[in-house]
Every structure is written in structure tokens, then in C-alpha cells.
Design a protein around this nucleic acid. Structure first.
Lengths: 219, 219
DNA sequence: CCAACCTGTCACCTGCTGGTGAATAACAAG
DNA sequence: CTTGTTATTCACCAGCAGGTGACAGGTTGG
């Protein structure tokens, strides 16, 4: 008996919980990673910390230090894990659709990205994090995300050549910026710059506006 | 002598500091408000708290409770104070320019808003806060900001009628969303979606892309 | 069997945060 | 000078954060 005046900090486990608690490092590492992603998606980066992750994973925080080298390493692991986001969330092929023009492509990419981001709370939190802080952690995540996105766009583009005389990098940056801000703002407050974004119908209107903008430039 | 074992918590004031410390509630209130705005602009909402504001204002946090009723009241005061942002930062007239079409107007508004946001760290922090959290505090700020912005746009619009057949609310929301995200992302990481945004020249390119988009819809 | 290792848990430290009750210092009026 | 009011500061509390060293117990090798 180590100490007589020890204070009980954690609730006593029920038999059901205790039984599945086997010694298994790989499983624990996965549990920690899952808990971290879930926590980040649920509560955002505000209350994201070692203690909260450990609580969510149902293990001691010491293990996070051991297995991931602290929060930084854990975030980096999330970033690495994020590389598979695009191919999980967004269809790589065009669904049998023939994209004849660059305008067709960009319209489709914009709408796909909008939907994917809207459906992924974790990704939204990361984007919000990106525009709120500039730490090593965030930069790692940001880099992983932008790399995955750029790769996806490149793949989708195929052999289609961008139009001459238009700064496609600039224009596309504006379009994707708009999508990201629309989705973030809507997820938090249900609107953006006076445009209500709650129901499916609201989003259809937004999509139409977006299409209109894309078509306005790329024809 | 109150307590013998008292611990010194604050540094001893130099004579210079002590001399200007007069009893003046109005001045102290202003100092607190200024410190809060400065702190928010400098470090962002992450480390924004009662203690930090009090430290920045050089007074005890108790005064923040007394004069503003806590952080919430202080943030609300910032919001109220924010109403004057638009007319301080953005010219209300069009600078002798004749805005003949709705496209002229929107192009000018977009560029003005871009510049104003780029020049105002406090406003940027608030926008970033808006997309990161959904608390009472943020909602207050957000409301004040959007109201000021909407009023400004309305004033600038004058008697110009929007074009028929276009969902101007939707399209404009997309445009303003894009501007906000571009500026936020650039302020943090110096780029956005592959577009570098550091030098004046970079921003000129972004402005051209933006103009192109506006003109693509509104002609 | 013992020794070495690995997974996991625990108690504790320091430092900060938000929050509060009481004391103190300056000033004004009687 | 005394009394009351107002502005300001102080000391302290509970709670939670990140971080660390020591220990318990299963697993494996000799």
C-alpha cells in the first residue's frame, strides 16, 4: 500500500469496462488518436488539451507523453492521419460526368469541396484553427491539409488546361476562401454576411450563387 | 499592518508611474477598455481574460467587475464601441467617384472592405473569433459588427437598384466571405489556398482576381 | 525461479485562471 | 477634525491546466 492518505480521483470501473481493458499498446495509441480527433471535432481547439484527450481516451495522460511525445506529437499524428481525408470524403472520379471545360471542372470542385467540408466537423475545426493561431501545431495541420487539397485538385484536373489570360491561382484562392468562410460561419452561427445558412434550401441558394460566380469568370 | 506573512505580488512602482496614478473613474474605465481592445488585437481571443486585461490596464481586476460587470460586460462595451468602426476606417462618400452601375458599387465596396479589414487587427481577431466559438460574448460582437457593416453598405448603395434576376444577397455573401477568409488566412500564415499574400504586389494580384469575380457577375 | 521490460496508474508539483470579501487610500461635506 | 463616499488594491480561495517521478502489475526471456 503506497500511501494511506491517498485520495480517490477516478470512479471505480464497472466490470464491463474493466474486462475490455487489456494491455495493448497499439489499441491504446489508436484510442488516444481517436479521442483527440473526436474531441477536436466536438469542442474545437479551445478546450483541446492533454487532460481532456486523456479523459476522452479513458487512459492516463502519461501515455500520451510516452506514445506521442506530448500534444505536439499527437497533433502531428492527426495531420499525418489527415492525408487520407480527401480520398475518404471526396470522390476521386467525376462520377461518369464529362468535364469539357475548365469552368465545368471548377464548378464541380467547388461544390464537392463545399459539401465535404460541411460534412466534416474535424476539418472545419482545423480550418478555424488555422485562421486563429499561428503555432507549430497549427502549421503542421495546415500544411497537411493544403497538401492533400492541392493533390486532389491536381488529380481531378487531369489533362484539362486552364484558360489563358486569367490568374487561376488567384481566382481559385478567392473561391475556396469563400467556401471555407461560408461553411465555418454557418456551422457556428447559421449564417454568413446576412445570408441564412441553415436548411438544405438555404444551402442550395448558396450553391447557386457560387456556381454563378464560377461561371461568371470561367464561362 | 494587516498580515505579517503577506507576500508581495506586484512590483514596486517607480515614482514616475506612481505620480500619474490619480483617482479618476472615467479615465480608469477608458484604460480598461483600451487595454482590452489592445489585448484582443495583439494576442487574440485565446489568452483574452480578466487577469490579462487587468494586467494590461495596470489596475486590479476587481475594477473590471465593478465597472463593467465582468468580462461579458467588457466585451459588450467593445461591441458598442465598435459601432464607430466603419466611419472611422472607411470613407463614407465615394471620393468624388461616380458609381454608375451596381457592379461599380460592389467592386468598390469589396476593395474598401478588404483594405479596411487588412488594416485593422482588432476586427480581424473578432472575425476569427466569430468562426471559432459560439458564446454569448462572441454573438454580441458579431451582431454589432454585422449591423455596422450592413448599415455602411446600405448607405453606400444610395439609390442604386440591384440588378434583377440575381440573388444579390447570396452573391454578396460569397464575396464578403471570400474577403474575410483571405485576410484572416493571410494575417496568420501569409497565404491562402496556395496564393501567397505578403507583399503589396501579392495583394494587388488578389485585388485583381476579386475585381474580376465581381465583374464576372455584375458586369 | 528471477530479472528485465513494458503497459498502465497514481499522486503530486507548479502556475495560472476566474472570482470574492475585506481592507485601504483619497476625497468631499458637515 | 470627523464622517461618509468612492476609487483602488490586496489577500485569498477553489479549480483546472501542463508536466513529472515513482510505482503496480502483466509479459517475456534466461
Amino acid at each position: 500500500m503506497p500511501r494511506a492518505n491517498a485520495v480517490l480521483k477516478k470512479p471505480i470501473e464497472t466490470p464491463a469496462e474493466a474486462q475490455k481493458r487489456v494491455r495493448n499498446r497499439a489499441a491504446t495509441e489508436q484510442a488516444i488518436l481517436d479521442a483527440a480527433k473526436r474531441l477536436l471535432a466536438d469542442v474545437g481547439f479551445q478546450n483541446f488539451g492533454i487532460n481532456a484527450v486523456a479523459r476522452g481516451a479513458g487512459c492516463d495522460k502519461q501515455l500520451i507523453y510516452r506514445y506521442y511525445g506530448g500534444l505536439d506529437g499527437l497533433v502531428e499524428a492527426i495531420g499525418t492521419n489527415l492525408g487520407s481525408w480527401v480520398k475518404d470524403r471526396i470522390p476521386d472520379d467525376t462520377g461518369g460526368m464529362f468535364l469539357l471545360t475548365y469552368g465545368d471542372l471548377m464548378e464541380r470542385l467547388a461544390l464537392l469541396f463545399l459539401e465535404a467540408l460541411r460534412a466534416d466537423p474535424l476539418m472545419r475545426r482545423i480550418v478555424a484553427w488555422e485562421v486563429s493561431e499561428n503555432t507549430q501545431q497549427v502549421r503542421r495541420l495546415s500544411e497537411a491539409r493544403s497538401k492533400a487539397l492541392a493533390g486532389w485538385i491536381e488529380r481531378m484536373r487531369g489533362s484539362l488546361t486552364p484558360p489563358k489570360g486569367i490568374d487561376t491561382i488567384g481566382v481559385n484562392a478567392v473561391i475556396f476562401a469563400a467556401i471555407q468562410h461560408l461553411v465555418l460561419s454557418a456551422a457556428v452561427s447559421g449564417q454568413c454576411a446576412g445570408l441564412v445558412l441553415k436548411t438544405t434550401k438555404d444551402w442550395e441558394k448558396a450553391a447557386i450563387a457560387l456556381k454563378r460566380i464560377v461561371r461568371g469568370i470561367y464561362g
